[in-house]
């Protein structure tokens, strides 16, 4: 346990609208070791971003509420931290890269000032030193240090995302949360930005939680993968476990949705039928059962527990999990 940087145990986060709960994250657990990269994969609205925000305790309150669970960062529960502890942790121990670089930079400050700001917030350095550090960070993400005085609107999307990465890594965080870092970028820039994140992560030995719905990115970057559905992790394991021996029907469905280069001409894609469940009104039993081709009565009645089908490979499914366990 102690070698894990991040341990999320039974985290449940609800949002409330008109007094009714929106079950965004349900009894979710996972852990992340030092230097590891975990890919959190799931559909839109599956609770990926809420999980990420919860790690920084940034879920908007009072609409959002942490119902139960623990988020242990180096053994300390983030959800029990004081405001001061949270401020010291954010940006210093855990940093976040946001989805849309177009809107995640302050338009009235120069990019350099914004990088220097995080440096000055977390270490006692003079203005000049912070400026120097900010210029170094700019160089590190491939932008000339002389662009220190440029404003965000002078940059393209890819360059802005580089700046966002520079801000995130300026204080050498131990955990980097990347919330769909490439979704808003076009494909050629995606590859560059991913490469950059990967390089810098290795350089600083940072752990990373990569949130995405793009399985290609996961395959390229992640050591471990967790598939999230309706706020629960339905399958987790190493990248090989998931990509080569994906077991859960939802994981299977995700891979069937992908177009393949070697498919026959005229062959159709095989999407998962139905829509992601409404988090205000989750189905009883296993949340996936209305869309699952293998659903049984057991699936309709009770929510399965995660089962370890091989070392480190967990599946939360009545059909697949128990079958393997018995074998």
């Amino acid at each position: 346990m102690s070698e894990n940087l991040l341990d999320i145990k039974n985290l449940t986060v609800y949002y409330y609208r008109d007094g009714k709960p929106i079950k965004a994250v349900n009894d979710l657990s996972f852990s992340l070791g030092k230097g590891e990269t975990l890919g959190l994969v799931g559909e839109t609205g599956a609770g990926k971003t809420t999980t990420a925000k919860a790690i920084l305790k940034l879920v908007p309150e009072p609409q959002g509420k942490y119902e139960s669970g623990e988020i242990l960062l180096d053994g300390k529960d983030v959800l029990k931290m004081s405001k001061g502890q949270l401020r010291r942790m954010r940006g210093h121990d855990v940093a976040m890269i946001f989805q849309d670089p177009m809107t995640s930079l302050n338009p009235v400050l120069t990019v350099g000032e914004q990088i220097a700001e995080v440096v000055r917030l977390h270490s006692k350095v003079s203005r000049a030193e912070a400026t120097k550090k900010a210029q170094e960070m700019l160089e590190m993400v491939g932008i000339s240090g002389s662009r220190y005085t440029a404003y965000p609107h002078e940059f393209s999307g890819g360059m802005k995302q580089r700046v966002v990465i520079a801000i995130a890594l300026a204080c050498n965080p131990r955990l980097l949360i990347a919330d769909e870092p490439t979704t808003a970028l076009d494909v050629t820039i995606q590859a560059q930005v991913l490469e950059l994140i990967k390089d810098l992560k290795d350089k600083f030995n940072t752990s990373m939680l990569l949130i995405t719905h793009d399985l290609g990115i996961v395959a390229e970057v992640c050591d471990k993968v967790a598939v999230i559905y309706a706020g629960e992790i339905v399958e987790s394991g190493t990248a090989e476990d998931i990509f080569d021996r994906g077991t859960h029907p939802y994981t299977e469905g995700l891979f069937n949705c992908l177009p393949r280069l070697d498919s026959e001409e005229g062959e159709r894609l095989n999407p998962i039928k139905g829509l992601a469940p409404d988090p205000m009104n989750l189905p009883a039993g296993c949340a996936f059962h209305p869309r699952c081709p293998y659903a049984t009565d057991a699936c309709r009645q009770s929510n399965p527990k995660p089962v370890e089908i091989e070392p480190g490979h967990f599946v939360k499914c009545h059909v697949r999990g128990i079958g393997k366990e018995d074998a």
Binding site: R90, G91, F98
Partner: peptide
């Protein structure tokens, strides 16, 4: 509602700083 406000929170800026500088 802008994301840079959330980003400012995520780098550990205090509320006072966010209100005045952002």
């Amino acid at each position: 509602g802008n994301e840079y406000i959330e980003a400012a929170q995520a780098i550990g800026a205090s509320s006072f700083r966010i209100i005045t500088k952002y």
